[in-house]
Design a protein around this nucleic acid. Structure first.
Length: 542
RNA sequence: GCGCCCAUAGCUCAAUUGGAUAGAGCAACAGCCUUCUAAGCUGUAGGUUAGUGGUUCGAUUCCACUUGGGCGUACCA
């Protein structure tokens, strides 16, 4: 529908000079009596032209040359809106398009040929993924899906660090548990990793090596074993959610390949660093930020900023057009420094999009569960997936804007999971599958020959919603918002259920029945394509 | 103190990025199954969009301040 309006406006622009260069937007009015699509162009132009908006609207309408087969009415309303009413037969044509394009419908090629990188999860291998990581993981993977659906070729990447203090403590935690198993009394520090999984790793080392590791250092076999075991679990948890990273990038490789040193050199050349108190500082104030920060500690170890910058340079050099970083809100202070550093070194930091999601508050029976990996006081992502299922988890994390601090009530999720909207969508899909089986027996088929028979209110509203799918995906991808897809699909499913209730197939005249089957099939395709972007299954029966 | 994010129906959240009468789900109440899945549909009720100003034809959306919450504010990541 919008494409058609765009077309006739472009034609009109040849007559009306002032239409050129105008950012044309067609909105779907909330009230049905305001038409199918609405333009505020006249109101925007009125100011520029210093004329009355309704007068400008009048002039625009008289220059529009449209086919009455497609548009049945154009009117001016309110302060100067131009409202367009499409003919039912034009609206119904979408069903044919959907049936033709099938699985591809909704996808587009707007960003074909572009390369994107989505870096997400990126939890260091110090323990199992928690529910908190779940939001990051699901969101990141869905953003990657969305980008792919508008043409990007996407690499999913996981950045991790297996060196540093955190990992030393991890290794030593395992070592102490190992000694305990050998009957040696140890003093297990409170700030060490308390989780059961540490004991399990220690146990497997005991099984494998017996007491041969008595004098092994924390950073030897202990850390090594902990890392491989924990990573194995992390990958398994992600796979349950259909999340597979293509690249696992080890921060350590930046040191080994001299990227850290190289980055420092680059800053030095630009005279952007100085020495103070034995440390190396980056002149961030000069780059427009709040204060200068240390990039190499007096101990000689870099702070996280330096490897982060070096890492992004590596990504830039791979030639991505778009690089997305997905972080929790605890990182909100870190990225401006990194972006400023990149920009100073001549990289186009606009290509890096940092998406910050707010924290998930876990509730259990009305009480807040405080989570800490260190204290082993957490609910793992695995437990959650096992309890409510991957579909619910994926849908739940996708259905909300990442800017919201979301509450996840575990007892509610377990007990009343059938109230989750994901079932509402899946049910609509299953219902359609059931119709398709039924019509075979009745010797009916989906036909797009007589779509103009789809003229009831329920049919028309459903068809109009189908028109929006493609644009909804494009907007979601461009704004990096997955929850829009959920909202859209819920609206679509609601309209389908209404159609199902009021527009029977059996008992209708054959041509109408077959047009309705085509509409049901088109709806099924869109639901399935939408769920597929979200990474949620579309079951044939429930 | 300063920075970022947030505040919308009893609860969880939307609102086409500045559009016309702010919408869904859950919970509550009243209805609808001898015909394609009742995990559904129809209806009722529920709001000073945290507050106060401002910008303009028009503000939940933009700006300022206030209040309340989250996360930061390291030579931790």
């Amino acid at each position: 529908m919008k494409e058609y309006l765009q077309l006739i406006f472009n034609e009109a622009a040849e007559k009306l000079e002032y239409l050129n260069g105008l950012n044309l937007v067609f909105d779907i009015p909330k009230t049905e009596s305001h038409g199918d699509l609405s333009s505020n162009a006249a109101m925007l132009l009125a100011k520029k032209l210093k004329r009355k908006p309704r007068e400008v609207a009048e002039e625009i309408i008289s220059s529009l040359n449209y086919d009455s087969e497609n548009i049945k009415k154009v009117e001016i309303a309110g302060p100067g809106f131009i409202n367009f009413f499409f003919t039912p037969s034009f609206i119904a044509k979408i069903a044919k398009e959907i049936l033709t394009e099938e699985n591809y419908f909704g996808h587009s090629k707007k960003y074909a040929g572009k390369k994107a990188n989505v870096e997400f999860v990126s939890a260091n291998p110090t323990g199992p993924l928690t529910v908190g990581h779940g939001r990051n993981a699901v969101f990141g993977d869905t953003i990657a899906n969305l980008l792919e659906s508008v043409g990007y070729s996407v690499d999913r990447e996981y950045y991790f660090n297996n060196a540093g203090r955190q990992m030393r403590v991890l290794g030593d935690s395992v070592r102490l548990r190992y000694l305990e198993l050998l009957g040696i009394k140890v003093d297990f520090p409170e700030d060490y990793y308390q989780g059961e999984y540490i004991k399990e790793i220690a146990k497997s080392l005991l099984d494998e090596f017996g007491d041969k590791l008595l004098n092994e250092s924390a950073e030897g076999k202990f850390k090594e074993k902990a890392e491989t075991e924990i990573f194995k679990d992390i990958k398994k948890s992600l796979e349950k959610l259909k999340i597979i990273h293509k690249i696992f990038f080890n921060e350590n490789s930046l040191y080994e390949e001299g990227k850290i040193r190289g980055t420092i050199e680059s800053f030095k050349e630009k005279k952007l660093i100085y020495e103070k108190d034995g440390a190396t500082w980056l002149k961030l104030i000069e780059l427009g930020n709040e204060q200068d920060k240390v990039i190499v500690k007096s101990s000689g170890e870099p702070t996280y900023r330096l490897p982060d910058i070096a890492y992004h340079i590596v990504k830039f050099n791979r030639g991505y057009d778009l690089m997305i970083d997905i972080f929790g809100s605890d990182h909100n202070a870190t990225y401006p420094d990194v972006l400023a550093g990149l920009k100073a070194l001549g990289y186009d930091s606009d290509k890096v999009k940092v998406l910050i999601h707010q924290f998930v508050t876990i509730m259990d029976g009305g009480e807040v569960v405080k989570m800490s990996t260190r204290k082993a006081n957490y609910i793992t992502l695995d437990q959650l997936v096992d309890e409510v299922g991957a579909d619910v988890v994926r849908y739940f994390f996708n259905m909300r804007n990442i800017t919201t601090h979301m509450n996840f009530d575990l007892s509610l999720a377990k007990k009343q999971s059938d109230e989750n909207p994901v079932f509402y969508l899946q049910y609509a899909h299953a219902r359609i599958c059931s119709i398709l089986k039924m019509i075979e027996k009745e010797n009916l088929k989906a036909s797009t020959e007589n779509l103009d028979l789809l003229s009831t209110n329920e049919e028309q509203q459903l068809l109009k919603k189908l028109h929006q799918f493609k644009e909804e995906i494009l907007i979601s991808a461009e704004l990096f918002e997955t929850h829009r897809i959920c909202t859209y699909l819920e609206e679509l499913a609601a309209l389908f259920h209404k159609f199902y209730t009021f527009c029977r197939i059996l008992g209708s005249e054959r041509k109408l029945a077959e047009a309705r089957v085509a509409l049901a099939l088109a709806t099924k395709i869109v639901i399935k394509n939408g769920l597929s972007i979200l990474g949620v299954n579309a079951p044939e029966r429930m």
